[in-house]
């Protein structure tokens, strides 16, 4: 293994926040192999994990310690917090709508700030990582079912606000401690894509999965500006094109495997609950309106009409 800063066309090291063997990493490794071949080794990308969470790898990219990242949507929260509705629960009707929002002008500010303040750019469309659903030891048909239930929510302020606004009792517990906390009953519920519930065996410690589909998680590739500008125009074009293709393909695969994951969960003994989604959306509306009033722009109406 060689190592260098990559500015002279050698190994570009990308820090992934996804665990080893994750589908996004697998896709990225295949894509990196094909790019290496097609550019005769001019663009040599290595995907590796273990550099830390989203904040860490983004900071490492911006200071030139690594050349890019595979991350979630924290960059929006960091660079344009007023647009974080794009990755918040119960805002959108469908993934298509959320995807359109990501590609709209509303996100330009976040993309620009990422370049100017964090010295990196998002390349390609979002990876669709699946709808987040809610698991528990009961179904949550309507929002009133989650009233006062201890639910583990990641440490994302707007998410905590929304769940609290609906009436749940959100608690932040680190992902490492999630399985044991559910097993032991430190918390009673959690929300994640079906794939995560499956691969981390959360079905062993939760009896019901309610398809709240409250938001689709997205994954992103960023390139440091230095690495990006060190490539020729042709290479850049090739990189962007092939990455876009790979992401579209992976997203389609994930959409497919999502229903398979739900089937597997059902086979594993979990009860899959179809909730009254309109009731959930309207229960979230007051707190969303409040968030748009105080922190977000433009407005819930405009966003839902994208």
């Amino acid at each position: 293994a060689s190592l260098s800063t990559g500015s002279d066309g050698q190994t570009l090291l990308f820090g992934s926040v996804y665990p080893s063997g994750h589908v996004i990493n697998e896709m990225a490794i295949d894509w990196a192999d094909s790019i290496r071949e097609e550019t005769d080794g001019r663009v040599d990308i290595t995907i590796d994990e273990g550099f830390g969470g989203e904040r860490e790898v983004m900071e490492q990219t911006s200071i030139g310690a690594i050349e890019g990242t595979l991350i979630g949507a924290t960059w929006v929260l960091q660079q344009a917090p007023s647009r974080y509705w794009v990755e918040s629960p119960f805002v959108f009707d469908s993934w298509e709508q959320q995807r359109r929002a990501y590609m709209s002008d509303y996100l330009d500010e976040a993309r620009e700030n990422l370049k100017s303040e964090a010295n990196q750019r998002v390349v390609g469309p979002p990876v669709y990582r699946g709808f987040r659903h809610t698991t528990g030891n009961q179904g949550f048909q309507t929002p009133s079912d989650i009233e006062g239930v201890n639910i583990r929510i990641p440490e994302v302020d707007p998410w905590l606000n929304v769940w609290e606004g609906i009436g749940a009792a959100p608690t932040t517990i680190s992902f490492d401690e999630l399985y044991s906390s559910l097993q032991q009953g430190v918390v009673d519920a959690q929300e994640n894509p079906a794939e995560t519930v499956n691969s981390y065996s959360l079905y062993e410690v939760q009896s019901h999965i309610t398809k709240t589909s409250h938001l689709a998680s997205t994954g992103w590739f960023t390139f440091s500006e230095d690495a990006w500008s060190s490539m020729s125009d042709d290479d850049r074009e090739l990189v962007e094109e092939t990455l876009t293709d790979s992401i579209e393909e992976l997203s389609a695969d994930i959409e497919q495997s999502e229903s398979e994951a739900l089937d597997e969960l059902e086979d594993g003994g979990m009860e899959v609950v179809e909730p009254d989604r309109d009731a959930w959306l309207s229960a979230a509306e007051p707190v969303l309106e409040e968030l748009f009033e105080n922190q977000w722009e433009p407005s819930l109406d405009e966003v839902r009409n994208i």
Binding site: L3, T5, G52, E56, E59, Q60, I63, G64, A65
Partner: peptide, 16 residues
């Protein structure tokens, strides 16, 4: 020559 010198990385990794 194998790794680039970066004081920022020192501070960043210590904090994280």
């Amino acid at each position: 020559p194998m790794v680039s010198y970066s004081p920022e990385l020192v501070a960043q990794t210590l904090v994280s």
